[in-house]
């Protein structure tokens, strides 16, 4: 009897904790979404339900262009960062005799612990100097933002690929050889499919990092390369913007859809 009460208490505490925790995580976002339907210029005074801000959002050239720029930079950055992250993951886990391994680990993991403000500053000064000395990059813009984003994303992708590869059973590659796969095809036929989920999550992480970055982009951007965070920040730095509320709701919707699809992909993966 006492045990039952104790267990009930534990269960209650568990559910209580989870409800409070998840409310804290979701309350602000959900409030923002609710107010995106508010038909009032003053964000927090409810006037009535409308899609007015969504309409204005989709007519706002500046935001649309920034969104396009951001997605372009983020997908390019994620792709390059993933390719290099896979290379780093391989060189650190698969080539056992790489000379001075700790040095390469240091090289590849340092960007992980560098505050973005320092990273942004140092990259900006670097681009200015190199423009001075060799004339490249000719001006700050999408290219400089892209290079910067690749630089800080590589380390994150490398960590993901590395942890997958270190728990990867090399026997399956030997088994493939034994069954007649020629060595040059082993990467494509065995290794790549096995680590594909990690490659995808690495790409997604790099994509998110780039799409989310405000500080580094603010330093390294130039004319014609306003990313979405830069535009949003300029809109909300000093006040509130009902259009940004609508934008939040749309981003939330995209993320939820992505999460649901990942959930189902994972579930079918587990079932397999």
């Amino acid at each position: 009897m006492q045990n039952t009460i104790l267990r009930m208490n534990k269960l209650f505490f568990k559910i209580f904790t989870l409800i409070i925790g998840f409310s804290f995580l979701y309350f602000p976002i959900l409030t923002l979404i609710a107010y995106s339907f508010n038909d009032n210029k003053r964000v927090m005074v409810w006037k009535g339900f409308s899609f007015r801000w969504y309409k204005e959002l989709f007519q706002n050239e500046q935001i649309l262009e920034a969104f396009y720029t951001s997605v372009k930079i983020a997908s390019l950055s994620a792709t390059f960062a993933t390719i290099m992250g896979v290379m780093i993951g391989f060189s650190l886990t698969r080539i056992s005799k790489i000379p001075a391994r700790p040095f390469f680990i240091f090289l590849s993991s340092s960007p992980l612990v560098m505050p973005e403000i320092i990273l942004g500053l140092s990259l900006l000064l670097f681009f200015i100097s190199s423009n001075h000395i060799i004339g490249f990059p000719s001006s700050k813009g999408q290219l400089t933002v892209l290079i910067s984003h690749i630089t800080f994303s590589v380390a994150f992708v490398a960590v993901i690929i590395q942890s997958r590869l270190s728990s990867y059973d090399k026997n399956i590659e030997e088994a493939a050889q034994d069954l007649g796969t020629i060595p040059n095809m082993i990467f494509w036929k065995i290794t790549a499919p096995v680590i594909l989920p990690s490659i995808i999550s690495g790409w997604l992480l790099a994509f998110t990092l780039s799409l989310d970055d405000l500080v580094v982009a603010s330093f390294t951007t130039g004319p014609g390369a306003n990313t979405l965070p830069i535009v949003v920040f300029s809109k909300v730095r000093l006040g509130l913007s009902p259009e940004v509320n609508a934008l939040s709701a749309i981003i939330m919707l995209i993320v939820v859809l992505a999460a649901i699809s990942v959930y189902f992909i994972n579930r079918s993966h587990i079932k397999k």
Binding site: L32, L214, L247, S248, A259, V262
Partner: peptide
């Protein structure tokens, strides 16, 4: 998945939510 969704949602927008 519920834990990861906020992680993926724009950082800037989550800060902005508190401003609101």
């Amino acid at each position: 998945v519920l834990l990861i969704i906020p992680f993926w949602t724009s950082f800037l927008l989550r800060v902005y939510a508190w401003k609101v």
